[in-house]
């Protein structure tokens, strides 16, 4: 049986993990490679690295970092942040990323999704969608959630599937950082409407939240950052708990 995926997300700035990391057993908690290896040992099913600097100047540093991660870990990983062209994606894939995520650039130029799918295959193309409940509608936001767009989230997700996205990483801005649980309604609305995997993100604060999202939505994965970094939820405990609750888990 296909298992639900537990996915820690590492935000990287100038080659270092940010958002705070509190691992007692890590000599250098800011080193993304060391942190990634720790998560792999604990049973993470996949990793996501978001480079929040992502400027042209640090392109080479970034390539070097992806190469280091690829050499060190033996599970799949996605890299994202500032991807604007097929060439950006090519660099990341050649450096060893299994998947590349696009967000704002895909909204600005949706054909980028199709071009990436054509060039590398849909399985490499993750479209990250930041969504916020605005009035009665879940709407798409870009540029780190700073700018609204005219796209309704459901319509946009259907469109990215048509264009060739292989996976949707759906972050609810209403839930992100609250630790009150994932946005079950919009996650399920999207998961039911598309036939590609949907990863739920934003709001995880405890083990029960993962059980809720996997019980009440067809999301195939759950992503979180700080609760793992600060050791509030350990991946080992989380997976053990979900297995006990009958959720298919590796």
């Amino acid at each position: 049986m296909l298992k639900k995926r537990i996915i820690p997300c590492l935000d990287i700035k100038d080659g270092r993990t940010v958002k705070g990391v509190n691992f007692v057993d890590l000599r250098d908690a800011g080193d993304p490679v060391a942190l990634a290896k720790t998560y792999v040992e604990q049973g993470a099913d996949e990793l996501v690295f978001l480079d929040i600097t992502a400027t042209l100047e640090n392109r080479n540093a970034r390539k070097g970092m992806i190469e280091k991660i690829a050499a060190a870990i033996n599970i799949p990983f996605t890299v994202g942040g500032g991807v604007r062209s097929v060439e950006d994606a090519r660099m990341m894939i050649q450096a060893g990323a299994d998947k590349v995520s696009v967000n704002s650039a895909a909204v600005k130029q949706p054909e980028l999704i199709a071009e990436m799918a054509q060039e590398f295959g849909s399985q490499c193309v993750v479209v990250a969608v930041d969504t916020k409940l605005t009035g009665d509608n879940w709407m798409v936001y870009v540029n780190g959630g700073r700018n609204a767009t005219p796209h309704k989230t459901l319509d946009w997700c259907k469109k990215v599937e048509q264009l060739g996205a292989g996976e949707i990483l759906l972050t609810s801005m209403n839930n992100d950082g609250t630790k009150k649980g994932f946005a079950i309604d919009i996650t399920q609305a999207i998961a039911a409407a598309v036939n590609i995997p949907v990863i739920a993100s934003g709001g995880a604060g405890n083990k029960e939240h993962f059980k809720e999202i996997f019980t009440h939505s067809q999301a195939t994965g759950g992503l979180a950052a700080s609760i793992f970094h600060f050791g509030e939820v350990s991946i080992i405990d989380l997976k053990h708990y979900l297995k006990e609750k009958g959720i298919p888990i590796r």
Binding site: M1, L2, K3, R5, D45, S122, Q123, G166, E167, N195, I196, P197, T220, G221, R250
Partner: peptide
């Protein structure tokens, strides 16, 4: 067949 999500992506036994 597209009776479930395609691709088959993730961990399976």
């Amino acid at each position: 067949p597209s009776t479930d999500i395609v691709p088959h992506m993730g961990w399976n036994n």
